[in-house]
Amino acid sequence: MPAVIDASKCNGCELCDLYCPLDVIHMEGEVAVVRYPDECWHCGACRQECARGAVSFRFPLAMLGV
């Protein structure tokens, strides 16, 4: 999982969904969900826009382990 959204912190503002340049994040009801984690560019746009600090990054083992 690259971008990870903490559902308990998400207030449903939709900004991460709106600004993800890869169309990776989609709203599901009132919560933003990382629907296409394999297509994350790790650019951090979602985190920069999140006023609630709900977005963090978890690098896949393939990136960290090599």
Partner: peptide, 9 residues
Amino acid sequence: VHSGAIAGG
């Protein structure tokens, strides 16, 4: 607002 090569900075 966030697109293209400098989407993140």
